[in-house]
Structure formats: structure tokens, C-alpha cells
């Protein structure tokens, strides 16, 4: 039972981390209709910038907090230089251009920070385990990710549901022309939303950094999963991204924690141990294919 709870928590933590990444992606997608493959690069830049700032300030929390506005500015710059020109284009041009940006950012990082990865140590006050239930220890840092992730998710929900910006975001996701007609400064809105997405990506990147190390291409690995999440959830839907991230987080953990034993109930041990990793590796793709066959625009996507 404790074990089950522990694994579920692991799934929640993973899901929340991926939600942060997916949130920015689904926002830019829903409002600007922009396929941004370079979102993973912002995740990476967030981690590298945080690494530098944490080194300067000698404080994890301070450095991390400073990294967020810096990545916001970076996001705004990227938006102004490249993205702005892509909104009116078809998805193919966007894929091509943002694929180019990935190559650029990966090499840029190598020029600035060198080819070897960097490591961020967990801040001292989190470098221990907490007892979530009597006798069930859980790494404090992972627990902190859950807390921060949940707070940000709530904040985002409030932002989208209760504020003027949120109203525009919702309006933009369902009908782009309408907000233009309302006389809103679209350019400013788009820039802000893109910057916001960059901040979420950076937050995910710098929070993941002490677990995964800071390395070139770290965003490329996770980007495809983030795309899978927003597609399952339905593009443009924050709620969809959240639900899908939670599902994907749980499925990933289940595939790794329980699948081998489950397969052993009806397969030989050696067949099960070679089949389980193969299946868990493709589980999210199977899920996505299944969802799309069932609902071609995802769980919470706009029907056409």
C-alpha cells in the first residue's frame, strides 16, 4: 500500500513537471496557432541560465527566481526576432523554422557553456527525505516539485479563468479574429503569452535540473512527450494539458513499476523482462494514437 502510494506520488511529480512544459506549449499553440519545436530549447536555456545565476548568487532559490525574468526576456526576444513572423504561416514553415532554432540553441549552449554537462545540487534544506506517511520516506526535493507544480497549476487556472489576460487567452484559443476585432493590442498579447510560456518552460527546466543534470539537448528528449501531452489533452486547452500530463505521468510510472510483474503472470520471466521495457517505452505513443483514433482533436480539443 505504501509502495503503491509512493509510486503514485512519483507519477504526480513527473506529471506536474511535464505539465509546466506542456502549458507554455499549448498556450502558444492555442492562441497563436504556433507549432514551436524550440520550446524545449527554452527549457534548456532556463536550466543553463539558472545554473549560471545560482553560481553567481550562491543561492539556489535566489538564482532560480532570477532565472525566470531572464528567460522571460529571452522568450520575448525570440518572439520578436523569429516567432512573430511565423504566426501567419502554415505549420510546416513553423516546424522548419523552429527545428532550425533547436540546432542553433544547442550549438549556442556548447559555445557558451562548453560540451560537458553541468550539475546543480539540491539546496541543502531540501537535500533529505520527508515522511509523507509515518515510515514512508520521500525525497524532499521531489516533494517540493509537487508543491511548486501544484501552486503554479492553480495560479494558471486562476489566470485563465479569472483575469482579463485569461479571458483574452480563452477568446483567442477559440476565435482568433474575434479578439482582434475587440481592439486588443494583439502583438503585445502574443508577446506576453510567449514570454509566459518561456517562463513555465524555464521553471520546468531548472526544477528538473537537480534531478537530471543540465545538458545540451536536454529539452529535445522531453519535448516530444510534451507534444504528446498537449495532443492528448486537446490543443489550446490548459485543462486538457493538465489532465493529460497527469495520465501520462501515471502511465509512465505504471509501465516501469508494475508492468514487468504483471506480464510475468502470463509470460515467462525472461520474455516479460524483455517485453516490459519495450512496451513501457511506447506506452504513451499507444495512448496518443488510441485517443486520436477515438477523438481526432484530443480529450478537450475544439471540435471542428
Amino acid at each position: 500500500m505504501d509502495y503503491l502510494l509512493l509510486q503514485m506520488l512519483n507519477g504526480v511529480q513527473l506529471g506536474l513537471l511535464m505539465f509546466l512544459l506542456a502549458a507554455g506549449l499549448t498556450l502558444t499553440f492555442g492562441i497563436m496557432d504556433l507549432v514551436n519545436l524550440a520550446h524545449g530549447s527554452l527549457y534548456m536555456m532556463g536550466a543553463y541560465i539558472a545554473w549560471t545565476l545560482i553560481g553567481w548568487t550562491d543561492s539556489f532559490v535566489l538564482g532560480a527566481l532570477l532565472a525566470l525574468p531572464v528567460t522571460f526576456l529571452l522568450g520575448v526576444a525570440v518572439e520578436a526576432v523569429v516567432m512573430r513572423r511565423l504566426y501567419a504561416r502554415d505549420h510546416l514553415d513553423q516546424v522548419l523554422a523552429t527545428f532550425g532554432l533547436i540546432l542553433f540553441f544547442n550549438e549556442l549552449v556548447r559555445v557558451i557553456w562548453g560540451p560537458a554537462g553541468k550539475s546543480l545540487t539540491v539546496p541543502a534544506f531540501l537535500n533529505r527525505t520527508v515522511e509523507i506517511l509515518p515510515g514512508v520516506p520521500y525525497p524532499a526535493y521531489r516533494f517540493a516539485i509537487i508543491v511548486v507544480g501544484a501552486v503554479v497549476a492553480l495560479l494558471l487556472a486562476w489566470l485563465v479563468a479569472r483575469t482579463r489576460l485569461g479571458m483574452l487567452i480563452r477568446a483567442g484559443a477559440s476565435n482568433r479574429r474575434m479578439i482582434a476585432a475587440l481592439g486588443v493590442n494583439i502583438e503585445l498579447l502574443f508577446t506576453l503569452v510567449f514570454g509566459l510560456g518561456a517562463v513555465f518552460a524555464a521553471l520546468a527546466g531548472l526544477m528538473a535540473a537537480p534531478l537530471t543534470s543540465v545538458k545540451i539537448g536536454m529539452g529535445d528528449d522531453i519535448l516530444i512527450v510534451a507534444f504528446v501531452i498537449i495532443v492528448i489533452g486537446g490543443i489550446g486547452s490548459i485543462k486538457g494539458a493538465f489532465v493529460a500530463a497527469m495520465i501520462v505521468g501515471q502511465i509512465d510510472i505504471v509501465g516501469r513499476a508494475f508492468l514487468p510483474d504483471f506480464l510475468k503472470t502470463f509470460m515467462t520471466a525472461s520474455a516479460a523482462s524483455s517485453a516490459a521495457p519495450a512496451i513501457s517505452q511506447v506506452l504513451v505513443y499507444l495512448l496518443m494514437a488510441g485517443v486520436l483514433i477515438w477523438r481526432p482533436t484530443g480529450l478537450f480539443g475544439q471540435r471542428t
Binding site: Q7, N10, R142, I222, R256, P277
Partner: peptide
């Protein structure tokens, strides 16, 4: 126990570490 984990894109070992602890 024996686990082959996703390669090369596994970021998280929490599930495996929980299994090992158990």
C-alpha cells in the same frame, strides 16, 4: 530484480528507486 530503462530519453528513476528500496 532487473530493469532495463528507457534509452536514451529516461529522465526519471523514481519508479525504479522505489522498487529497489522495496
Amino acid at each position: 530484480g532487473e530493469d532495463l530503462t528507457k534509452w536514451p530519453d529516461q529522465l526519471d528513476f523514481s519508479a525504479e528507486l522505489a522498487k529497489i528500496a522495496a
